[in-house]
Nucleic acid binder design. Structure first.
Lengths: 206, 206
DNA sequence: GTTTAGTTTAACAATCCTGTCAATTTTTCG
DNA sequence: CGAAAAATTGACAGGATTGTTAAACTAAAC
């Protein structure tokens, strides 16, 4: 049992992932994936049967990552403001690793009803978990008079809005492909990260 | 010179707009647009020459709308907090009329380098105009000690983030096509609008 | 009523798309 | 080694795609 350094199936998967994240399902053809990966395009069907199945495998994984991580970020036993601060920062840092991810998922969800249903089904339990973490924490702080009353869903959407939009803006204003990790991008993101924490914390204070 | 109630060119344009907004450039074929509009697909090429030209006409208009309106919303001679409140609300209400617009523009900008350059070129003067409106207003309030010091770009991005993401969320969580103006959607949006104003105002206070 | 300009149509190219399959090469393993 | 299994290939089918064009239709203008 040798460990192949070049596993064809994996190679196709990685190439497809890169192209799909960049241009979406309808923006990429099977032929192009095969060409880019340097393999015969029949192989793509040999391993994944259809373009749809290949795409779904990638989409499923990415959508799950995106949702799961949002819970993970806030699932820590910390003082309230710390929990919020660390949560925002963790979520932000996660997106730094995968800047195209949010727009990729959103694009496909809006374009395709089945995928929308798929993600809503997944989002529901995730939403409940995070709700159960955040709601009592908010209530407690409100009772203590430390923060103004705020709905959990509003707070979470605010955080998601600010963090996600930072990466959408990066993709619009910078050439993320060539610039990659340029100083300008890093500086912009650092500023947004700091701003997002401050904005959310400030907005909670009475 | 009679005013035709059914102008074919206009009909194609409107149909194309609806489909492109929904599924993007690569998600719609010329044949489909023609079929949906109930005209021969050659007409589409007769009037617009190519799919690209037809699309660009729509994209250009939509992208301009999206940017211009953001300035308009804040270009009012009002007390600072009023200016911010009214600006957020106007921008939000504009998006209510065209909920698919932000994701449409973002999708195409990310997928296509030329369109990205196109929008950046357009965004630059718009950005400058709005910058000149907001920056002195902020400085004045900071000097008065009414708000904490904040960068104009941060404030504007915060507003855009919260407002735009509300409509992205709507598209993910609701079936905007069939539900249209359902009570659930209206309620969700009303809550987000209120939240966005509050969040921004609160985050500015010292 | 014939010309003229603007519309509309059907048919056609050329290309690209997804997916299949039988034949061939490579790998695995008894 | 040699048979069985797995991986890879090229050719091809059946459609769909964008785009062109010549001919037919329509309605206004002279």
């Amino acid at each position: 049992m040798e460990l192949k350094t070049t596993n064809t199936e994996q190679l196709i998967l990685e190439t497809a992932e890169r192209l799909f994240l960049e241009r979406g399902y309808t923006g990429v053809s099977c032929t192009e994936i095969a060409k880019e990966a340097g393999v015969n395009h029949a192989l793509l069907h040999y391993y994944f049967r259809t373009k749809e199945k290949l795409f779904n495998q990638i989409f499923e994984q990415k959508a799950t990552q995106l949702l799961e991580f949002f819970v993970e970020a806030f699932d820590r036993d910390l003082p309230f403001f710390e929990k919020v601060k660390i949560g925002i920062e963790m979520h932000f840092d996660f997106l730094v690793q995968q800047p195209e991810l949010p727009l990729f998922v959103l694009r496909e969800v809006v374009q395709n009803k089945e995928r929308k249903d798929q993600i809503i089904q997944k989002a529901f339990p995730v939403g409940q978990r995070i709700y159960k973490i955040i709601t009592p924490a908010i209530e407690e702080e409100v009772k203590k008079g430390v923060i103004r009353p705020v709905k959990a869903i509003d707070l979470l959407l605010n955080i998601a809005s600010l963090n996600v939009f930072a990466f959408v803006a990066v993709q619009v204003f910078f050439d993320i492909k060539s610039d990659g990790k340029s100083a300008a991008i890093r500086q912009f993101l650092a500023q947004r990260k700091k701003n997002n924490v401050e904005t959310i914390i400030q907005s909670l204070k009475i």
